[in-house]
Design a protein around this nucleic acid. Structure first.
Length: 115
DNA sequence: CTACTGACTGATC
DNA sequence: TGATCAGCCAGTA
């Protein structure tokens, strides 16, 4: 299974109100250093996708931290969607990652990916 | 195969 | 606290 497919599959099953950061997704997929690749996979998603990509954020609970050349509107849109799921941002655009972080084992991930 | 790029991170300054 | 630099991986030319 291609890396992007794994990313999409995992992100697709993130419960509402739950969050995962890029690094975490990379770890769950077996490549702790592949955070950038995760971002690349999400960037390839079509505009009207059903995948809850907004539930994947930067490591400190910050959206649209770096990069974001082609998708300057994503930051505001992502934050808006997260707030609609009950996540509260502070004035700086951050939110506590821990309380929302989706805890799941590598075994569960394998089950999700069907491996 | 090499070079460049990017929804990332962590260390440094 | 905030800006920079340097490694990371996968995809594309």
């Amino acid at each position: 299974m291609n890396f992007p497919e794994k990313v999409i599959k995992l992100v697709s099953v993130i419960p509402a109100g739950r969050i995962l950061n890029y690094g975490q997704v990379a770890i769950l997929l077996g490549n702790p250093k592949a955070a950038r690749a995760v971002g690349y996979a999400l960037a390839a998603l079509p505009a009207g996708t059903e995948v809850p990509w907004h539930r994947v954020v930067g490591k400190d609970g910050k959206v649209g931290k770096v990069s974001l050349q082609s998708s300057k509107y994503i930051e505001a849109e992502q934050q808006r969607r997260l707030e609609s799921e009950g996540i509260i941002f502070d004035e700086s655009g951050y939110f506590p990652l821990q309380p929302y972080l989706w805890q799941l084992s590598h075994i569960e991930v394998q089950a999700i990916l069907g491996e």
